[in-house]
């Protein structure tokens, strides 16, 4: 089977400007991956499926990974001139100070694809795609039309991570209930604290529940079943 670098070269020859990037994997598994630019993903996927030598006709696994915003502390060396008194004379002296600086690295949602070939019996070839951020630009192209096995798995990633797959024929939640607003597989998900509350047709019970809720201090989390 071709190495990731060879696959990258083959993709770039077939799809000009595909913007493929090799992501090395330091683990002994040696399963390195290729990061695709979402814009060309469908063309690349079709090439990988239909290319006679690669023939990656079987999308086995599709899943999401959440990379939240990360605060990174860096040590930076700064040189500045300081006024110092040496031997009773005031002088300007160059001094190097180490200073720690904090910066936020923006997070993203990542989708990982594991491809195999049934015809050639090789694999896995690992593809990844990243959304721009985790809040409002979470759209990625759907590959359901290339590999049908993405149909339920994309629905699952949409459900549990909140990645919106553009072009999916039936993008609905798969495992959580319809009214659910949250995405429980995200790292910053907070569990609801009102599991016991159940809707009931009896007004008295409803009133009691509302009263209980009003006196309760714990804030009800948004996006749970009511």
């Amino acid at each position: 089977m071709k190495t990731v670098e060879e696959i990258k070269a083959a993709i770039e020859a077939a799809v000009p400007g595909a913007g493929v990037e090799v992501v090395p994997n330091p683990s002994p598994s040696g399963q390195h991956s290729l990061r695709l630019a979402p814009g060309h993903a469908i063309a690349v996927a079709q090439f990988l499926r239909d290319d006679a030598e690669l023939a990656l006709d079987f999308l086995s696994n599709l899943t999401g990974v959440d990379w939240p915003d990360k605060e990174i502390t860096e040590k930076v060396k700064i040189t500045r001139s300081v006024a110092k008194t040496i031997d009773g004379v005031e002088q300007q002296v160059e001094e190097t100070v180490e200073e720690s600086r904090k910066r936020m690295e923006p997070g993203c949602l990542e989708v990982v694809y594991h491809l195999f070939s049934v015809a050639k019996e090789h694999g896995p070839v690992v593809l990844r795609m990243r959304t721009i951020n985790r809040t409002d630009q979470v759209e990625l192209p759907s590959l359901t039309h290339v590999w049908r096995s993405a149909e339920f798995q994309e629905r699952e990633v949409f459900d549990l991570y909140g990645v919106v797959f553009a072009g999916h024929p039936d993008l609905r939640r798969l495992l959580m209930w319809e009214g659910c607003k949250d995405h429980p597989m995200r790292r910053d998900y907070v569990e609801p604290d009102d599991f016991e509350y159940e809707p009931t047709p009896h007004d008295a019970v409803l009133a009691r529940a509302a009263e209980h809720k009003a006196t309760e201090e714990s804030p009800s989390q948004e996006g749970t079943a009511h």
Partner: peptide, 10 residues
């Protein structure tokens, strides 16, 4: 504690 990295086993 495995070293950083990823793996798919089937």
């Amino acid at each position: 504690r495995p070293k950083p990295g990823e793996a798919y086993g089937r």
